[in-house]
Structure formats: structure tokens, C-alpha cells
Design a protein around this nucleic acid. Structure first.
Length: 224
DNA sequence: AAACAGGTCAACCGCCAGGAG
DNA sequence: TCTCCTGGCGGTTGACCTGTT
């Protein structure tokens, strides 16, 4: 792992490196990764720093098992968007693209292939988003405490009008999806109570109806 | 207990797009 | 307009873990 004096370090990160990186990101923000890498003296590339922060150190990361509800979302969004892991990750607050990508490869792609071979699974990218149709092998519980905003949208979609469903899909695909995601993250991260829920597994302290689309979008427009 | 196989996941690599000069 | 740099993204690798023989 250790190479020449001028070479960049590779391999697993040490605790001291994590602490140093976190300090610098808190000062400079999540940008200028090359500068952060240089200033830190970590002998890591900017890319490596960015990767470490986004996939491991970032606050509000939701570690632990992917819940059945999250799995449904991943399957549905993968069906819709393909291997657009970062895009899918934005719809799952607290999950990273790397995590979702790994989960897909190790769990879902196999399952998907198997079911397709058995002929009882239909990939239906343009169809209506009926969970029972799209996920014949998954029966998530809509009343589960693991509901996320998106989960509500997917699972309770039948209770919404077609127009409402269209608006929500447009929302996620809009140019402002990143800000939307950031906003969701800040919603989640405010307050220790939410953090406690967050750290406890898969229990977010809010859902779509609690956030409220109009006020959420208003504040999004204010972010610049 | 040891060897092996398969699964998991953190980390790296290469490509590409966008912005700055 | 062109070139260079930075950062984002998806694919891939390899170390580690766990289960099985």
C-alpha cells in the first residue's frame, strides 16, 4: 500500500485520515476535492477523498440493511432508469450510489434474472407504476414504520390521481432533483430526535405528506 | 482444523461532461 | 474556439468474511 514518498496512498482509510478529511470538509464544504486533498496532507487523490466522504463519512448516511421498501424502490427505479445508480440513490436519502450498485449486483440482479428465466417477472419500463404488477415477489407493508417519502409515493400510488403521479415522477427527474435531495437530507438531519430515528435502522421521521410539496418546492427555489 | 467457494462491499479506474481561462 | 482541470458517474477489482466440505 505504501509506495514512494510522492505517490498517492491507496487502499483502506485509517481513522486519522477520516478525521482529518471530515475536519477539512466541514471547513471547505463538499467541493474542491483536489484542494482538500492537497491541504490535508493525506496523500490521497481528490477523487479518493470525495469517494470516502460521500460513501462513508457524510452525515446522515443510513447504514445497515436495505429494507424491503427500499428494495422495491431500487427495483422500480432500475427498471425505469437502468444503471443510473447516482440517480437512484438520490431517491433513497441516506443511501449511496455505491451501496445501491453493490446491493443490486449481489442481491437483485440475480433475483431479477432468476425470475425472468422463470417467466413470472415482467420488466415494464413504460407501464404504470403499480407495485403489485412491478414487484410480484415483494409485498411491502404500506403501514410499515420504514416508509420513506418515495416509498409512500410508490406504495400508495394507487390512491393518487394520474396527474399527481406524473408530477411526482417529473419532480424526481427535474433539474432540481439534486436540490430536492439536499433538502430532504436537511429535513432528516435537523434535530437529535430525527437522528435517533435515522440511526435506529430504517425509520425516517417524516413522509411525503408531512413534508408538503408546495412549501418544500418554495424553499427549494430559495436555495441558490 | 484446514481448505475452498461464494458473497459482500470498500475502494480504485477510466471515461466523460462542464466550467474556467 | 480550444485546452486543461475538476468532479461525477458507472464498471471493476480485490480484500475480507462466512459458510460448507
Amino acid at each position: 500500500m505504501e509506495q514512494g514518498d510522492n505517490s498517492l496512498r491507496k487502499g483502506p482509510w485509517l481513522e486519522e485520515e477520516d478525521e482529518q478529511l471530515a475536519r477539512l470538509v466541514n471547513v471547505f464544504g463538499e467541493r474542491k476535492w483536489d484542494s482538500i486533498a492537497r491541504i490535508s496532507g493525506l496523500r490521497r487523490s481528490g477523487k479518493s477523498c470525495r469517494m470516502r466522504w460521500l460513501n462513508y463519512l457524510r452525515p446522515n448516511l443510513k447504514r445497515g440493511c436495505i429494507s424491503p421498501e427500499e428494495e422495491q424502490i431500487i427495483i422500480q427505479l432500475h427498471d425505469r432508469w437502468g444503471n443510473k445508480w447516482s440517480r437512484i440513490a438520490r431517491s433513497l436519502p441516506g443511501r449511496t450510489d455505491n451501496e445501491i450498485k453493490n446491493y443490486w449486483r449481489t442481491h437483485l440482479s440475480k433475483k431479477n434474472t432468476q425470475l425472468q428465466e422463470e417467466g413470472n417477472f415482467q420488466c415494464n419500463s413504460n407501464a404504470s407504476h403499480n407495485p403489485e404488477q412491478d414487484f410480484p415477489y415483494q409485498t411491502g407493508n404500506p403501514s410499515s414504520s420504514c416508509n420513506l417519502a418515495y416509498c409512500d409515493i410508490v406504495q400508495n400510488g394507487s390512491a393518487m390521481t394520474g396527474a399527481d403521479q406524473y408530477d411526482l415522477w417529473s419532480l424526481v427527474e427535474s433539474p432540481y432533483e439534486t436540490r430536492l435531495y439536499d433538502h430532504w437530507m436537511s429535513e432528516i438531519s435537523c434535530g437529535e430526535q430525527e437522528e435517533a430515528k435515522f440511526g435506529g435502522g430504517c425509520n425516517y421521521g417524516w413522509n411525503y405528506s408531512e413534508v408538503g410539496e408546495s412549501c418544500m418546492m418554495d424553499s427549494l427555489w430559495d436555495m441558490s
